[in-house]
């Protein structure tokens, strides 16, 4: 459908537009932008065939900074616009960039449906647990008690967990990364793009202005290794600065627990092997919270199914195969007609 230019090997800077990036200095978005540009270059993506669609919020400015096709739409509706793009032209490589307010509050419905339909887009949700662009109100991912201009006494809304929500929507690919972990993010982006169907990626993003250090309890350098686990399909769920911690099924219970290998008779054999096709395990992994448990990162769930737009295309093709290309003059005369002479 698209005229492909000879795929020349591009560099990350070839994916950067000429527009000045206008996020606050020190915003986590810079690192994500860079990681996306690097990943696209490494994957051999073509700017002409790539579309970034966004809603409203700090993260939603993303398309302006990409030297690709881009559509900055309206608050919460990027998944709906992206679905239309993909249905109309399945050959395009479509990315949605969104934030926690955009996708889990005003646009929660559209996130639900793009995931359960399994439209082949990469959905990047920048989660900073705050409304940045509107100057700091609490968001649907903000924790209980979060103080903000609209919650001077602290938030009384129970937060939603982005990845748990995605799994509940029947997403077939769920991953999580952190803004500052460029290498791991790049790996997640590559996997997300390779995955056929909706790929949901939550990116923990620090808003230095309105919610600085919201994630410090697991991203702070000194504790990061003991508070995070990067999961890999087929490998043991082992983590920690000394690689001595692991996740196992708590004996006699249907839950996970963090254990230390070598303590209380625990050996490596007790540690679970990550199976990214196991939805139940994925549900347990995404729900792990510090300090008791590490935060799960990497590709947590991946179990492909037919992408929506392919099924749409198949129905169109089946209709043409069964009926031939439609002739309007015939259609208008179908059924009961009569002739006046």
């Amino acid at each position: 459908m698209n005229v492909q230019v000879e795929p020349a090997k591009l560099k990350a800077k070839d994916f950067a537009s000429d527009q000045e990036v206008r996020w606050c200095p020190g915003c986590g978005d810079y690192a994500i932008l860079k990681a996306v540009q690097v990943a696209l270059a490494n994957m051999g993506a073509q700017p002409d065939n790539t579309v970034f669609v966004s809603g409203i919020g700090c993260a939603a400015r993303f398309p302006y900074y990409m030297a690709t096709y881009g559509f900055h739409t309206i608050h919460g509706r990027a998944p709906a616009v992206a679905s239309g793009v993909k249905i109309a032209n399945p050959d395009l490589d479509v990315w949605v960039v969104s934030g926690d307010g955009d996708s889990l509050s005003i646009g929660g419905n559209h996130l639900l449906h793009i995931l359960r339909r399994n439209v082949d887009v990469q959905f990047l949700l920048f989660n900073n647990e705050i409304y940045g662009l509107t100057k700091g109100q609490y968001s649907p991912t903000s924790g209980l008690g979060q103080k903000s201009p609209s919650t001077p006494q602290g938030s009384i809304d129970a937060p939603v967990d982005a990845c748990t929500f995605a799994l509940g929507c029947n997403a077939r690919f769920v991953a999580r990364g952190i803004d500052i972990q460029a290498k791991e993010l790049g790996h997640v982006f590559t996997r997300a793009r390779d995955h056929k169907g909706a790929s949901f990626v939550e990116i923990i993003q620090n808003c230095i202005v309105f919610n600085d250090d919201a994630f410090a309890h697991f991203t702070e350098k000194s504790i990061a290794k003991n508070s995070q686990i990067i999961v890999k399909h087929g490998e043991k769920l082992i983590y920690g600065a000394a690689s001595d911690k692991g996740i196992r099924v708590k004996p006699g219970a249907f839950e996970l627990e963090a254990v230390t290998i070598g303590e209380n008779g625990i050996t490596e054999d007790d540690i679970l092997v990550h199976d990214e096709t196991n939805r139940v395990l994925a549900g347990l992994l995404v729900a792990m919270k510090p300090p008791e448990m590490p935060v799960a990162l990497g590709v947590i769930y991946c179990d492909p199914a037919t992408p929506y737009e392919q099924a749409v295309k198949a129905q169109v093709e089946a209709s043409v195969a069964a009926n031939g290309v439609g002739d309007l003059d015939v259609l208008l005369r179908k059924g009961s007609t009569w002739t006046v002479s």
């Binding site: 559509f71 739409t73 709906a80 616009v81 679905s83 239309g84 249905i87 749409v312 209709s319 290309v325």
Partner: peptide, 29 residues
């Protein structure tokens, strides 16, 4: 009428219906 170059999409709500139609126009349909 899918064999007439028509794709139909029952969206999740009215807003998504308008937005996906806009997305389709943006893509050249």
């Amino acid at each position: 009428l899918k064999n007439f170059g028509v794709t139909t999409f029952q969206a999740e709500d009215e807003i998504a219906a308008a937005c996906s139609a806009i997305g389709a126009s943006y893509a050249g349909n």
